[in-house]
C-alpha cells in the first residue's frame, strides 16, 4: 500500500479538521504528510501474524496497580466563575457561540 494524500483528499481532511490554509501552506503540509506516510509504510515490513494483540499502552495494569474506581458521586465545581471567565463570550453563565449553520436533509 503506497498511496499518497492527493490534493482532493487533503482538501476534504482540511474541511473536516476545521482548518483553512493558503495554497503555499497547504502544499507544504501535504508534502510533509506524504513524507511521513513513506516512513509509516515501514510498518509493512513488520512480521505480524494474526495472534499479535493490539496494545493500547505499554504497561499492563494488574489488580494491585489498577486504581480503584471512585464513588459515582456528583460534586459541585468549586470555581465555575473562574472557568467561565476563560471563555471568549459568556452570557448569564452560558457559553455563547456564533450562528450554527443548518443543512436541510433530503
Amino acid at each position: 500500500m503506497t498511496e499518497e494524500i492527493s490534493q482532493a483528499l487533503f482538501a476534504k481532511m482540511v474541511g473536516l479538521a476545521a482548518f483553512a490554509f493558503d495554497p503555499e501552506e497547504a502544499e507544504y503540509l501535504r508534502g510533509e504528510l506524504n513524507n511521513q506516510l513513506k516512513a509509516i509504510h515501514q510498518l509493512e515490513r513488520a512480521a505480524l501474524d494474526q495472534e499479535v494483540p493490539l496494545a493500547s499502552r505499554g504497561v499492563t495494569y494488574t489488580p494491585e496497580s489498577r486504581p480503584p474506581l471512585r464513588p459515582d458521586i456528583w460534586e459541585a465545581c468549586e470555581n465555575p466563575e473562574e472557568i467561565l471567565a476563560q471563555a471568549p463570550h459568556v452570557e448569564e453563565g452560558y457559553l455563547v457561540v456564533p450562528d450554527i449553520p443548518h443543512t436541510e436533509l433530503e
Binding site: 494524500i5 482540511v14 476545521a18 482548518f19 504528510l33 511521513q36
Partner: peptide, 28 residues
C-alpha cells in the same frame, strides 16, 4: 459569519504547522 467559519479561522490562526500536521495525520 457562522460557527464553522469561526472554527476554521481560529484554528488556522491559533495552531502552528506541527499541530496542524499532527491533527491531519491522526485523522488520516
Amino acid at each position: 459569519s457562522d460557527l464553522h467559519e469561526m472554527y476554521r479561522k481560529t484554528r488556522a490562526e491559533g495552531f502552528g504547522p506541527e499541530p496542524k500536521l499532527r491533527i491531519l495525520m491522526g485523522m488520516y
